[in-house]
Design a binder for these strands. Structure first.
Length: 433
DNA sequence: TCTGGGGTCCTAGGACCC
DNA sequence: TCTGGGGTCCTAGGACCC
């Protein structure tokens, strides 16, 4: 009797130079010219068009260091427009659903498609159709890599991106094993998904330079050096499927809101304003995923890049008596922590809050010996619902806590922002205007 | 003058229990 | 001076991802 084992097969769809591509959709003048997008606060470069890459502009390069060079080469520069990118991402992901019933959104610009149960005769052709359709309907160029697991699909995408003759598609499953090995030999160790800078240094010092080298490593030994994560990578390079993406990614286990300040901040009052805003944002995310949280961590720090000044960073965590999603509960705690970690006389550059101990909204666990007043929780829930509704309809921060401040001189820099073409009536694209 | 933000998973080690 | 063994839970810290 034959035992049929369902063979796994995955595709990774990766948007090319995603943030740049989003800007280009609404501004055709940006095509064929070098374009970069910066991080918040116009700090570093996070996205580069191919033309910008060809100029030797590096990923994560601080903007102030290369500004002159960019301007001299007439590179178009943008502050990040995350509303626009989020919206475009959503459109791409919806389009992918017409190609596969199991789409795992992995990041703003990537999704894995589990093709194991799809009936596809020719994967390569299927991939090409996908690339064409997404570009035609949304205007975003994508690359598709296909393999026996997510690691190999990722590798296929990387190879396809650097091989123009592949036209954006590589199907490793359609290759003989020898051919796959040939590809793996060309993939450098630090380009494998899950091998970062530290591990790459370690592995190279031990004689592993390519994905092919790692594929043939002793698995027990790798486990000791790189934990089970490393073990799984080696198994996947050998064709087994064992790395999973958390299916329930939309309910997060931790929620953060952190930002650098647009300028140095010294007073506790200004930091308190920023912290109030970050808390408000984090708790809003918490409510959006229908959860409550029990503890909050706050950290503040000075500029770690500034030599000659003592770097200062400190954090504190505080617990509520029961899980909450009521913003003022967390603001109160955060400001109390701030009293403990704030040291006068320092130039602060960044602050952040993390919410942890997250539980579903419905599970309001009553802790013994603690006062839990269900009536006031109901009132607070309604108050927050009202606030979220108004902010949803009239724009974020229409209603906010007075503690967030009004001047906000610490707010991040965004000097080169493009318009919110897709999310603001005032900023729709004007044709022929 | 100017260096992002938001996540995940894993392990070691301490606290605590019987 | 001697000073068990085994389990669980929690947290901090380190690695990684985009």
């Amino acid at each position: 009797m034959a035992i049929i084992i369902n063979k796994k097969i995955y595709a990774l769809v990766d948007c090319n130079n995603f943030f740049v591509s989003c800007e280009r959709v609404f501004n055709p003048k940006l095509r064929q010219v070098p374009v970069v997008v910066l991080t918040n606060n116009d700090g570093c470069i996070i996205a580069r068009s191919n033309e910008a890459k060809a100029l030797g502009i590096k990923m994560a390069e601080p903007f102030f260091k290369c500004r002159d060079y960019l301007e001299a080469n007439n590179v178009k520069i943008f502050s990040p427009n995350f509303r626009l990118y989020g919206d475009m991402s959503h459109r791409v992901m919806s389009e992918l659903e017409s190609f596969c019933s199991k789409v795992e959104v992995y990041s703003i610009d990537e999704a894995f498609l589990d093709l194991s149960e799809q009936h596809i005769n020719d994967y390569h052709k299927w991939g090409q159709q996908l690339v064409d359709k997404v570009y035609k309907n949304i205007g975003i160029p994508v690359t598709v890599g296909i393999g026996a697991n997510r690691t190999l699909a990722k590798i296929a995408t990387e190879i396809a991106k650097h091989s123009p003759e592949m036209n954006g598609v590589l199907d490793l499953e359609g290759c003989h094993e020898k051919k796959i090995d040939e590809y793996l030999k060309k993939v450098e160790i630090q380009d494998i998904w899950g091998i970062g800078r530290k591990y790459a240094v370690k592995l190279r010092s031990l004689g592993f330079y390519s994905a092919y080298d790692l594929k043939n490593a002793d698995i027990g030994w790798i486990r000791k050096k790189l934990t089970v994560m490393g073990q799984r990578i080696v198994m996947e390079l050998n064709g087994k499927a064992c790395r999973n993406i958390d299916d329930i990614r939309n309910t997060k286990k931790a929620i953060a809101s952190t930002r650098s300040f647009g300028k140095y901040v010294t007073t506790k009052r200004e930091i308190a304003e920023a912290v109030s805003l970050y808390v408000a944002r984090a708790v809003e995310k918490l409510r959006r995923q229908k959860s409550r949280a029990e503890s909050i961590t706050l950290y503040i720090r000075t500029n770690p890049h500034k030599s000659g000044e003592q770097y200062y960073s400190n954090s504190g965590t505080a617990q509520l008596e029961y899980p909450s999603s009521f913003t003022p509960d967390f603001v109160k705690l955060a400001l109390k922590i701030l009293d403990n970690v704030y040291v006068p006389g320092k130039k602060y550059k960044k602050a952040g809050v993390f919410l942890t101990g997250i539980v579903p909204e419905s599970v309001l666990q009553r802790k013994l010996f603690h006062k839990y007043d269900s009536d006031s929780v109901k009132i607070n829930d309604n108050l927050m619902k009202c606030l979220d509704t108004i902010n949803g309809a009239y724009g974020k921060r229409t209603l906010r806590l007075a503690s967030e401040g009004f001047e906000r001189r610490w707010y991040m820099k965004q000097n080169l922002l493009s318009k919110r073409f897709t999310s603001s009536w005032d900023e729709l694209l004007v044709v022929g205007g």
